[in-house]
Amino acid sequence: MAVTATVITSRTNPRVKQLRAAFTGSDRLSEGLIAIEGHHLLEEAIRSGITPKTIFLIERQKITIVPPATAEVLHLSSDVFASAVETRSPQGIAALIEPPAYSLENLLDRQISPLFVITAGLQDPGNLGTIVRSAEAFGATGVLTTPGTVSPWNQKALRASAGSIFRVPVVSATEEEIAALQTAHSLRLFAAVSAAHDEGVLSANATDLRQPCAILIGNEGAGLAPEWLAMSTARITIPCPGPVESLNAAIAASLLLYEASRQRSSAAPSATETIPGPLRRRPTGATR
Rank of each mutant, 00 (worst) to 15 (best):
I55Y: 07
G242L: 10
L181F: 02
E44V: 04
T141Y: 10
D79G: 01
L19P: 14
I65G: 09
G221W: 01
R235Q: 08
L229A: 01
E43Y: 02
L257C: 08
A250D: 08
T274P: 01
P147W: 08
L144G: 13
K62M: 09
Q211W: 00
T4I: 08
A252L: 05
S48C: 01
I178P: 12
L74E: 05
A82L: 07
I217C: 07
I63K: 05
G92F: 02
S265W: 02
H197C: 03
Q182W: 00
S172V: 00
L96H: 03
G139F: 12
G277Y: 00
L189T: 12
S113G: 00
G218Y: 07
S161R: 01
R60L: 01
A101W: 01
A137S: 15
E44L: 04
E37H: 09
A137W: 05
G285T: 02
A179F: 01
C213N: 12
R20H: 15
A196K: 11
G121A: 13
P283E: 06
Q211S: 06
R262D: 05
I97G: 06
R28S: 15
A184Q: 15
Q111G: 00
S10W: 07
P276V: 00
V85I: 14
I36S: 12
I55N: 08
L96Y: 11
S77F: 01
A196Y: 04
F138N: 10
P243F: 13
V168M: 03
P169C: 03
L216E: 09
N106P: 00
A184F: 04
T87E: 10
P283N: 07
